[in-house]
Design a protein around this nucleic acid. Structure first.
Length: 216
DNA sequence: TGCCAGGCCGGGT
DNA sequence: ACCCGGCATGGC
């Protein structure tokens, strides 16, 4: 039976033992997490780093500075991250929301209960469930789990979930089987991404000869 | 050298 | 409620 959650906890412990702590999210500030969460949508993190470096070099990595910047200029700075026009729009939407919601005071924003904040964040055009959960967990330390394509692929290969699971179903599946703990959520998702990076894409149920082996 | 990366939206069925 | 095309760069 899989109802105890032993699978996910055992996977977590095995990944942690094999790879060590992840130290996520890689950013110098909560605000940088927010920006990075949008920039990394369907994009290699290396490219996001270049975009963030551009913003830092121009001293633009603050809410007021980015919100004041015309979208066209913002797009030019974040070009290396790809999808730069739509991401400039999405960032602008999110920044306007942050300004209205908390005047860019993320510590204050974090005081809002998750049940209120998550649906509110999801109203922002360009902020989908993974981006929202990334911001909530890694910038605001709220008890929500981030899941993604790696999570689905790996758990499916272990026979735990169907292949066509939706984001919300997958998130519920995992949260129902893990202790409610911000630090655990943080590390669990980070480890799955790190495993996913080194994971071959063969569609066999259990793929050996790759990082997934760490917890087989 | 093509394929893919820590998604999401809008329009169509 | 799904399904699909579009969005774009740099790395392996």
């Amino acid at each position: 039976m899989h109802t105890s959650g032993a699978h996910l906890l055992a996977m977590h412990q095995a990944m942690l033992k094999a790879l060590g702590p992840s130290g996520w999210w890689p950013a110098d500030s909560a605000f940088e997490v927010v920006v990075g969460a949008v920039l990394t949508q369907n994009t290699n993190w290396k490219n996001v780093e270049k975009a963030l470096a551009n913003l830092k070099a121009a001293d633009l990595l603050t809410g007021p500075a980015l919100l004041a910047l015309p979208e066209e200029a913002l797009a030019a700075h974040i070009q290396p991250a790809g999808y730069f026009r739509i991401k400039a729009r999405r960032l602008h939407n999110l920044l306007a929301w942050l300004e209205a919601r908390c005047a860019f005071d993320l510590e204050q924003l974090a005081l809002t209960p998750l049940e209120v904040l998550r649906p509110d964040l999801l109203t922002v055009k360009g902020v989908g469930p993974e981006t929202a959960d990334s911001i909530l967990l890694y910038a605001l330390q709220q008890p929500t789990l981030v899941v993604d394509a790696y999570t689905a692929r790996i758990l499916h290969r272990h026979g735990l979930i169907p292949e066509d699971v939706t984001y919300e179903e997958l998130r519920e599946y995992c949260m129902d089987r893990l202790p409610q703990d911000v630090s655990l959520y943080n590390e669990f998702h980070a480890l799955l991404v790190r495993v996913g990076h080194g994971h071959c894409k063969k569609r066999t149920p259990r793929c050996h000869g790759c990082a997934l082996e760490a917890f087989l």
